[in-house]
Simulated scan of single mutants.
Amino acid sequence: MSNVFFISDHHFGHKPIIDFESRPFKDVDEMNEVMIEKWNAVVGKQDKVFHLGDFSFLNKEKTQAIVSRLNGYKILILGNHDRGRSRAWWLDAGFDEVSEYPIIYKDFFFLSHEPMYMNFHMPYVNVHGHIHSQKYEGVNYFNVSVEHWDYTPLTFEQIRDAVVPSEEQ
């Protein structure tokens, strides 16, 4: 049985993010390698991963090299730093699917790069990235930026169990 994972904001190849977010890496090469190792430590070949944007700052060849090393069927929801490149570019870089728009998953989880406005009438939980180490308050938001999760993708069950009271599962 395969698992479904969620993660965002790797910023592969982006040296300034180490200082911007106080990432615990001596340089960009170490950051890239550790993040690949942490991904593959939990994601198997048959698993599915939703990457919620801001994947890589590298050129296509170097991005392809990273994507090809990562386990799983990879779906990218474009983030603000990904949008300078076309869907076709990201597909050529190795993603199995690429969406320019948010995705509703299991009729309840609203997957997007940036946090989306959720009023109290909306039944969704917004699984998002973009704001890195910051956090939105409230039960309608779940930040999967790498800084919150030790650079490791989270399973669907980890997110569900954190946001849905156990009697509703």
Rank of each mutant, 00 (worst) to 15 (best):
R23Y: 00
F50T: 01
E33G: 05
G129T: 02
N80T: 14
S22Q: 07
S2T: 15
V49W: 03
S112R: 08
V144F: 03
D161Y: 07
S133W: 12
F95T: 07
D150Q: 02
V49D: 05
D150H: 02
D96Q: 00
I103L: 14
D96R: 01
D150S: 05
K15D: 14
H113K: 13
H128I: 08
R83E: 08
G72R: 06
M122S: 15
V139Y: 10
R160I: 00
D29I: 13
M118Y: 03
E97C: 03
F142G: 11
G44D: 11
S166N: 07
I159T: 07
Y101F: 15
E97Q: 13
P115G: 06
L154S: 14
Y117C: 05
D161Q: 13
R160V: 08
P123K: 09
L52M: 12
N119I: 01
I104K: 11
S145V: 03
H51R: 01
S22R: 15
F5D: 05
K48P: 02
D82T: 05
E21Y: 12
M118S: 12
D29W: 14
F156D: 07
L58S: 08
V67F: 00
N71Y: 02
F110R: 09
A41L: 02
Q169E: 08
G44T: 11
V144P: 01
D19M: 03
E167K: 14
I36S: 04
L154H: 10
V67D: 00
S8L: 01
W39S: 07
I77Y: 09
F110S: 08
V4Q: 10
L76F: 12
D9W: 14
F5W: 12
G129H: 04
A162I: 04
Y151R: 03
D161A: 11
E33I: 11
F142M: 09
S2E: 11
F20P: 06
Y141P: 01
R69Q: 15
A41V: 00
M116R: 14
N80P: 12
K45H: 10
I103C: 08
V43C: 12
I17R: 03
H121M: 13
A93T: 01
V146T: 13
D161L: 07
K60T: 06
P153G: 14
P24H: 00
L70M: 13
G72T: 01
Y73N: 12
G13A: 03
R69W: 08
H51K: 03
S145E: 00
K26D: 14
P102T: 04
D161E: 13
G53F: 04
W39Q: 07
H121D: 09
S2I: 13
F50L: 05
N71D: 02
Q46Y: 07
N143R: 02
E114I: 15
H121C: 14
I77M: 03
P102H: 04
D29M: 10
N140L: 09
Y151E: 10
S2L: 14
G138N: 04
I17H: 04
F6C: 06
N59S: 10
F142W: 14
V4F: 09
I36K: 05
